[in-house]
């Protein structure tokens, strides 16, 4: 875990007013630790992406957030209240889609929503019909409302699940893989829906194993890996935290290597191009990299060497610089780097 990850800083410095806040949240199943000391900090009004490969503990974390499973250790605060102790105050304000939709197959979509809405004493029966209709409308299911769920496609069930989460006014929506099984059109609609909900002040906590999804709809994100929280923060912070590297095109490769080594940068040899050789060098030591940091070096500032300093040094050493670019890691590279796995690879 990157100690400098901005998210981690904000989690420790701001402890009031967070919509979701956990400390040391841990879940053990026997000897296996499914969730290990997770400190989540979800600011109000955010669309918070909860990223991680399958099996990284996302759903277990969500279960603990909602009081479905008890935590082995640690605390959960939702909307400023302790969970699961005050679930009867918290949960009416939370809409949830947990690990896929689940409905009574022998009931119609409308009947299912009626039942779930009637399951709690915190809803007003008088407005139930209107609220159910509105929620079905919101997810575009009005046409199939009276069909038995048995006959629904996966995508329709997914929509119905989201409709259930939207039955009442919610301050927080927890959506576990909301676009699972949806066609591209449906995915776009969900994305749109989430954004519009967020604009109305609802905090949305979306889990996904698809980075692109998070990238497109979220303001904040956390990345889970093997039960641990690898990083969290706003998307901008996460992107910035990714390491940058310089790409240098020069015919004087040997000389350039020497200069870069003098700056404390490791470089790799890239492909050979008409203009000379390409050298790649990480500008800042990536998380866990041991070699690159030189403390006290005049050129090192906050762990990153400025691009202009490098070019100046190179030129001063007589290296012909035919091309120079600083490349920042994409969120995707960062995700892979943090989780250490490819997408969709279960542990």
């Amino acid at each position: 875990m990157n100690p400098d990850a901005p998210g981690a800083q904000s989690a420790s410095s701001v402890s009031y007013g967070l919509t979701i806040e956990t400390h040391g949240l841990t879940k053990r199943f026997g000897r296996q630790v499914a969730v290990d000391g997770v400190d989540l900090a979800v600011p109000p009004g955010s669309v918070f992406g909860f990223l991680g490969p399958n099996g990284s503990g996302k759903t277990t974390t969500i279960r603990m957030l909602l009081g479905l499973a008890s935590a082995s250790a640690g605390t959960v605060n939702l909307l400023g209240m302790e969970m699961p102790g005050r679930f009867h105050e918290v949960l009416p304000r939370v809409g949830a889609l947990v690990e896929g939709p689940a409905f009574y197959p022998f009931l119609s979509g409308v009947a299912n929503l009626h039942r779930l809405d009637a399951a709690t004493r915190h809803t007003v029966p008088a407005t139930r019909r209107a609220r159910v209709d509105r929620a079905l409308d919101q997810v575009g299911l009005a046409h199939a409302a009276n069909k038995r769920v048995h006959a629904y496609s996966l995508g329709m069930k997914q929509r119905l699940g989201i409709a259930n989460a939207l039955l009442s006014h919610r301050d927080l929506l927890v959506l576990d893989e909301p676009t699972n099984g949806l066609d591209p059109q449906g995915t776009r609609e969900v994305r749109h829906l989430v954004r519009s909900l967020a604009q109305n002040g609802t905090t949305v906590f979306v889990s996904s194993h698809l980075l692109a999804e998070v990238d497109q709809m979220c303001t904040h994100a956390a990345i889970m890996s093997a039960g641990k929280l690898a990083a969290q923060g706003s998307l901008a912070e996460l992107r910035r935290a990714g390491s940058a590297r310089a790409r240098l095109l020069t015919p004087d490769a040997a000389q350039a290597r020497k200069v870069l080594a003098g700056l404390g940068l490791n470089c790799e040899t890239g492909d050979v191009q008409p203009g000379g050789e390409t050298l790649l060098a990480a500008l800042a030591p990536a998380a866990g990299a041991s070699s690159a940091r030189i403390d006290g070096s005049p050129t090192a500032r906050s762990g990153e060497i400025l691009a202009e300093d490098i070019v100046a040094q190179l030129v001063a050493a007589g290296v012909r610089v035919r091309g120079f670019a600083v490349e920042r890691e994409s969120l995707e590279d960062r995700f892979v780097a943090l989780t250490g796995e490819g997408f969709d690879v279960a542990q």
Binding site: L66, G67, A96, V98, E99, G100, A102, L116, A119, N164
Partner: peptide, 10 residues
């Protein structure tokens, strides 16, 4: 799976 939805209803 409806048990979890009944419980979070709550």
């Amino acid at each position: 799976g409806t048990l979890r939805y009944l419980l979070v209803a709550p």
